[in-house]
């Protein structure tokens, strides 16, 4: 089936099998491998990206469901000149990562969270990131980074 998806501002027209997962589409068809597959069962959040501005788990979405949508992956957050998005900068400055595997999903979930709650408490951040697991258990600095990005 033919789909038309705008990913990181670039429109793509692609033929996909209906069973193609969105994460498979962005990684394999578009080569955007920043979006990781972790648990592959919509638990861990490593595959989080934005569909029409909201975080979604791309292992549990079909590419055909994103037909017509605006998708943003971790590659689309930084400026065209390579300057980091404020959330990426906050993760770097607060050491919000250890092994880094969950990081793209965490950053995408966190940017979506701040759109919904621009001025979060620490509890808002902890609850708001419930869909993202860090197997290094580096949550403390991740929460610190998100709060720093929110100006706290």
């Amino acid at each position: 089936m033919q789909i038309r998806v705008t990913v990181n501002g670039v429109e793509h027209v692609s033929d996909v099998e209906p069973r193609t997962l969105l994460v498979q589409y962005v990684r394999e068809a578009l080569g955007l491998t920043g979006t990781n597959v972790g648990c592959d069962t919509s638990s861990c959040g490593a595959c989080s990206l934005h569909v029409d501005g909201e975080a979604a788990k791309s292992c549990t979405l079909l590419a055909v469901q994103a037909d017509g949508a605006q998708v943003t992956t971790i590659e689309g957050l930084a400026g065209k000149d390579g300057s980091l998005h404020p959330m990426q900068k906050a993760f770097m400055e607060n050491h919000g990562l250890q092994c880094g595997y969950c990081t793209p999903g965490m950053v995408m979930a966190a940017t979506s969270l701040l759109k919904e709650i621009p001025n979060p408490t620490e509890e808002d951040v902890r609850i708001g990131l419930e869909g993202n697991l860090c197997r290094c258990t580096g949550y403390h600095n991740i929460v610190k980074a998100v709060l720093a990005c929110a100006g706290k």
């Binding site: 919509s42 989080s48 569909v51 975080a55 788990k57 549990t60 979930a109 419930e130």
Partner: peptide, 9 residues
């Protein structure tokens, strides 16, 4: 229900 990503969809 689930988490924010799940609740978005």
């Amino acid at each position: 229900v689930g988490d924010p990503q799940v609740r978005h969809r």
